[in-house]
Design a protein around this nucleic acid. Structure first.
Lengths: 130, 130
DNA sequence: GCTTGATCTTCCAGCGACTGGAAGGATTAG
DNA sequence: CTAATCCTTCCAGTCGCTGGAAGATCAAGC
């Protein structure tokens, strides 16, 4: 199967698929004409990557997950640990963004937002309150 | 004032300050020895940048904010619009992360996490449920 | 005056995860 | 046979820094 079809089936851009190959995440066969030739197993792997990336795992973490996935003797604890770490990171990021949101919401609310030049947002950024 | 002092006062790494200069966010004077020489106004500008970046504004948005800051005829509505857009983006990002969190939490909870190889997380990623 | 160490300069390279585009070969439809 | 589409490789750019090398300058101590 050519890369265009693989792209459609995995919901990944062809460029990204080539990139994943370049960094060693998969090794598709080659047809006689030099075109990449994807098997169903390759598509499975690409979909796996697509889902894992969508869940916020980095490419390196995806590599680990794929390695665990391919290891029939893996312990589920290893996978759980990876996912739990990622969950932690996501929670931290959420907390950080919520703090930003709070500050920005306050600023937006106190700015009258008309044609006049005085602006509490710029005041805050310029350190007027500090 | 040398860059080291400017770095301490603005809470930005010296490398970052040089980078900001390179992309045209400020133009410090130069002393006879070739060292950058920061004025109090420069420090003010750097602190402004430090705060705005900390609030999640991109460097290009910071450039706009600085331009609005320096324009005494600006309308506060312009600044408010920038901030409101940023707020929207932050809210979207939070929603996205919360959705990720939900999925990952579920996966982590259903994975027994012991030495056995069966793992609902990998099952999900491999598309067992799809 | 000399040495040492901190600080400054420029320049180049790399991070992560792609994405865009150019130049050219292969395939397919009509 | 032609035109359109798809494939190939390679190089460059994105964003916002960050690290390091090589060399100049400065400040402090002896």
């Amino acid at each position: 199967m050519n890369i265009g079809t693989a792209a459609r089936r995995s919901a990944l851009p062809a460029k990204t698929i080539r990139y994943y190959e370049e960094i060693g995440l998969l090794r598709p066969a080659r047809a006689d004409n030099g075109y990449r030739d994807y098997s169903d197993a390759d598509i499975h792997r690409l979909k796996f990557l697509q889902r894992a990336r969508g869940l916020g795992f980095s490419v390196e973490e995806c590599r680990q997950l794929l390695s665990l996935y391919g290891d029939s003797h893996r312990a589920s604890a290893d996978v759980k640990a990876l996912a739990a770490t990622k969950l932690d990171q996501i929670e931290h990021k959420i907390a950080e963004l919520q703090s930003l949101k709070k500050t920005l919401t306050h600023l937006v609310r106190t700015c009258h937002g008309d044609a006049r030049p005085d602006c509490p947002i710029l005041d805050e950024l310029s350190g007027a309150s500090a």
